[in-house]
């Protein structure tokens, strides 16, 4: 079984988010980058399936050279090889076209990724790839198992419930918890990752369909009103009469 796992390089979840250049660019200064946490579920589950059924796991990133430490980390966790499409990920449509170009060439049985990136929160790429390739996309999935060699059984979240879906290979799925327990690299993994192949390819011809023109941050709260714990019930009255939300 050949599995392609798409990963994004994103600011660590504890990062303070700032912008530069007249609020037109994300400020990378002092920010540590990690593998998108949702993608870690996809990566670990892919490795578990490979260990159980045989096959290979290829990691794909659409991004610039500064993503390579986290691509190596994915190899250290257990992926076999990696591809980086050397391009700034302009928008979801652009990224989906790059993934589709790689996936068509590689003939993968399964294309997995996180349900969204924690920086741009699009929740778009997996469904776009499914549509571009003409194969099913099951998102967001929190369970993925093989029924037999050609069929997978997934459980996906819908508002207020879940759906159980069985699909034939090949398919696209996006992952979220509690699909598996994401792994961290061990020393042996880190050593072997250094020599695993990481291929850099130039992007396929594709255009973005949206332009990010400006960023802003939410307004700060004006300050907290403290209520004495002994009279805690007062807050309910304030919520009705002052904040008017009850």
């Amino acid at each position: 079984m050949k599995i392609l796992v798409c990963i994004s390089n994103v600011p660590d979840t504890t990062s303070k988010i700032n912008f530069t250049g007249d609020n037109k660019e994300f400020d990378k200064n002092g920010v540590q980058f990690v593998i998108n946490p949702w993608d870690e579920y996809a990566l670990t589950r892919a490795i578990e399936l490979k260990e159980a059924k045989g096959g290979s796991v290829t990691v794909l990133n659409v991004g610039e050279a500064d993503a390579e430490p986290n691509i190596r980390k994915a190899l250290a966790i257990g992926a076999d090889d990696a591809i980086r499409v050397n391009a700034h990920p302009k928008d979801a449509y652009f990224v989906a076209q790059q993934i589709t170009a790689i996936a068509k060439e590689g003939g993968y049985d399964m294309i997995l990724m996180g349900k969204e990136s924690i920086d741009y929160n699009g929740f778009q790429v997996h469904n776009m790839v499914g549509e571009m390739m003409g194969i099913p996309s099951v998102t967001p999935a929190f369970k993925l198992d093989m029924v037999d060699d050609s069929t997978a059984r997934l459980e996906r979240e819908i508002e207020g419930g879940k759906e159980v879906v069985e699909v034939k290979l090949p398919f696209v799925a996006s992952a979220q918890q509690p699909m598996c327990e994401p792994r961290i690299p061990n020393m042996r993994g880190i050593m072997t990752a250094r020599t695993k192949p990481l291929k850099v390819v130039e992007p396929a011809g594709a255009e973005a369909k949206s332009e990010y023109v400006n960023y802003s941050k939410p307004e700060k709260k004006s300050g907290v009103k403290m209520i004495d714990a002994e009279n805690a019930g007062e807050v309910i009255k304030l919520l009705r009469n002052e904040a008017k939300v009850l």
């Binding site: 979801a92 989906a96 778009q124 549509e131 998102t139 819908i158 369909k209 949206s210």
Partner: peptide, 24 residues
């Protein structure tokens, strides 16, 4: 709506109708 269903259908339609999509 930016629901699991709305965003999924919107993403597929963006491809089919060659449109620009913004979620959230």
């Amino acid at each position: 709506s930016n629901s699991n269903i709305g965003a999924a259908v919107g993403s597929k339609l963006a491809v089919r109708l060659n449109g620009s999509l913004a979620t959230n």
